[in-house]
């Protein structure tokens, strides 16, 4: 991977700009993708990616353009890399303890965090899920039933939006790309940004496996960088 700023052959300044942002958006999509994958229940793909060091490597490569800011999550990436040789069963059992059916579980769904906003308690899950489903469908993707507000799904949707944006930049369709950039921002504003910090805080209280510790620190730093003004990171909640 290379720094997109210095490795583009475009001479037209506008095309050059598009070419740079095409690569940046692709990198961001990549990061969301790995985060999403890591928050799903551990499976062979995750285990393989982790053991081969691909997660760390890919995130590093995909964020070269972040420059100085990348140093903020280097620590967490380092921790993640140490988990490469983690016992597979440990990871799975900890996932069950944290997010599965246990007394200590931390809900991994948006609706579990936003019930205060809902008009009627019982409807919360449905309202959030419905809104999300409609939102996804606007962009031509549909979630698995009952998974609409699941963390990895939302992350995956961000990855999808970034991917779309990346393609628009590639085609020099700046107007559409900018629209998508705004959509990403809106999605962070309306959904992920609202509940993710609290989710992180709760998970870190449960003394999770080093992998999940590193993962939530990494995700929190990343979302903080992505979100821009107004993000309230987990600690201050």
């Amino acid at each position: 991977m290379i720094d997109p700023r210095t490795h583009t052959n475009e001479t037209n300044p506008k095309h050059r700009a598009c070419s740079i942002l095409h690569q940046v958006a692709r990198g961001r999509s990549q990061v969301y993708r790995w985060l999403a994958l890591s928050f799903y229940a551990p499976d062979a793909e995750l285990a393989h990616a982790l053991n081969a060091g691909r997660i760390v490597e890919d995130i590093l490569l995909a964020t070269v353009w972040l420059g100085e800011d990348r140093k903020k999550f280097l620590t967490h990436l380092g921790k993640l890399r140490e988990c490469a040789s983690s016992a597979w069963s440990d990871l799975a059992s900890d996932y069950q303890r944290l997010f599965g059916k246990s007394s200590e579980r931390v809900p991994m769904r948006e609706s579990a965090y936003r019930w205060r906003e809902a008009s009627a308690l019982l409807d919360t899950a449905n309202q959030v899920a419905l809104a999300l489903r409609q939102h996804y469908e606007q962009f031509g993707v549909a979630p698995i039933a009952n998974h609409e507000d699941l963390l990895p799904v939302e992350l995956e949707f961000m990855a999808f939006l970034c991917e779309c944006e990346s393609n628009e930049w590639k085609n020099n369709a700046a107007e559409r790309a900018r629209q998508l950039r705004l959509q990403e921002r809106t999605f962070l504003d309306d959904h992920l940004g609202r509940w993710f910090p609290e989710f992180c805080r709760r998970v870190s209280d449960r003394a999770p496996h080093p992998f999940y510790t590193a993962l939530i620190f990494l995700s929190d730093t990343w979302l903080n960088l992505e979100y821009g003004p107004g993000y309230v990171p987990a600690r201050s909640l």
């Binding site: 300044p13 506008k14 050059r16 700009a17 598009c18 942002l21 700046a174 790309a177 900018r178 629209q179 950039r181 705004l182 921002r185």
Partner: peptide, 13 residues
């Protein structure tokens, strides 16, 4: 303050 300002081209907001 470029006449062909790439920054103005890409700003989503």
């Amino acid at each position: 303050h470029c006449a062909q300002a790439p920054c103005a081209e890409v700003c989503p907001a």
